[in-house]
Amino acid sequence: MLTLLTATGSRPAAWALCERWMARQDYTGPVRWIIVDDGVEPQPVTFRREGWQLILVCPSPHWAPGQNTQARNLLKGLAAVDRKDRLAIIEDDDWYAPDWLTTVDRALSRAELVGEHRARYYNVQQRRGRQLNNTGHASLCSTAMRGSALVAFAEACKARPKFIDLELWRRPHRRHLFDGHRVVGIKGLPGRGGIGMGHDESFSGQADPDGTLLRSWVGGDAEVYA
């Protein structure tokens, strides 16, 4: 079984797309999806798939503009995770290829902390994309873990840094980074703003006014971001 953990709230448009990307995953094993929603109004959860179990966690106090509740919410979700579990972080506003969970499942047989390096970010409001050169760590949206890495992840969340992924990947454990570009960090969707650099107005990257770059990254799925 794979366990997924998503921290969300006040992002109904992004959440609807997240459900869509998970519904088409080609992974055939059982999945437990822990969804932590701290919005004032819970987002509609319409996801149904045979072999998938959904656990909805609604922490309080609710998120308010200007707050960063990511670490708290991830810890709330981790309360339902055991060290023997295999955990993949799924972020609500990012794009995932149909074989992402299958890829993660295979990678976790090699190491306790795995992820896709050389991240791609795309801001749909700015119509701008950027290929990063991170080769020593993976973004949180493309990270999975098991065993001692789960303990390290909880410790990283408790430290409450702004960027939990950097805190996690600098901690010592068996790791495996791989290529593939099966994840794109999507920025600028409607609703609650994100905290990463891709959300910033000063985000720099390749201008993509006609969507050619995005289509080369996500294929026909680019239409949903038009």
Rank of each mutant, 00 (worst) to 15 (best):
K84S: 14
D85P: 13
L87Q: 05
A88D: 06
I89T: 11
I89S: 02
I89H: 12
I89Q: 02
I89P: 10
I90P: 02
I90Q: 01
I90K: 07
D92P: 02
D93M: 04
D93W: 01
D93Q: 00
D93H: 04
D93F: 08
D94P: 09
D94I: 03
W95F: 15
W95T: 00
A97Q: 12
A97L: 09
A97I: 10
P98D: 11
D99A: 08
T102P: 01
T103N: 14
V104A: 04
D105G: 09
R106D: 14
R106I: 11
A107V: 15
L108W: 09
S109P: 05
S109F: 09
S109D: 15
S109V: 08
R110V: 11
R110K: 13
R110D: 06
A111D: 03
A111C: 04
A111Q: 09
A111P: 06
L113V: 03
L113C: 13
L113N: 05
V114I: 06
G115W: 07
G115I: 05
E116F: 06
E116C: 07
H117T: 07
H117W: 15
A119Y: 10
A119F: 09
R120H: 15
Y121C: 10
Y122F: 03
N123L: 11
V124L: 03
V124S: 03
Q125W: 04
Q125D: 15
Q125K: 07
Q125T: 13
Q126R: 14
Q126L: 15
Q126K: 02
R127Q: 13
R127I: 11
R128Y: 01
R128I: 06
G129V: 13
G129H: 07
R130E: 05
L132K: 12
N134L: 09
T135H: 08
T135E: 14
G136Q: 06
G136V: 03
G136N: 04
G136D: 15
H137R: 12
A138P: 04
A138W: 00
S139I: 12
C141G: 02
C141L: 04
T143L: 07
A144L: 04
A144S: 11
A144D: 10
M145N: 06
R146I: 08
G147M: 09
S148D: 12
A149M: 12
L150W: 00
L150K: 09
V151F: 11
V151E: 15
F153R: 13
A154C: 13
A154T: 08
E155Y: 00
E155G: 10
E155S: 13
C157E: 02
C157S: 01
K158C: 05
K158V: 12
K158Y: 05
K158D: 03
K158I: 10
A159C: 12
R160L: 08
P161I: 12
K162H: 10
K162W: 08
K162G: 12
F163E: 00
F163S: 00
I164F: 07
I164T: 05
I164D: 07
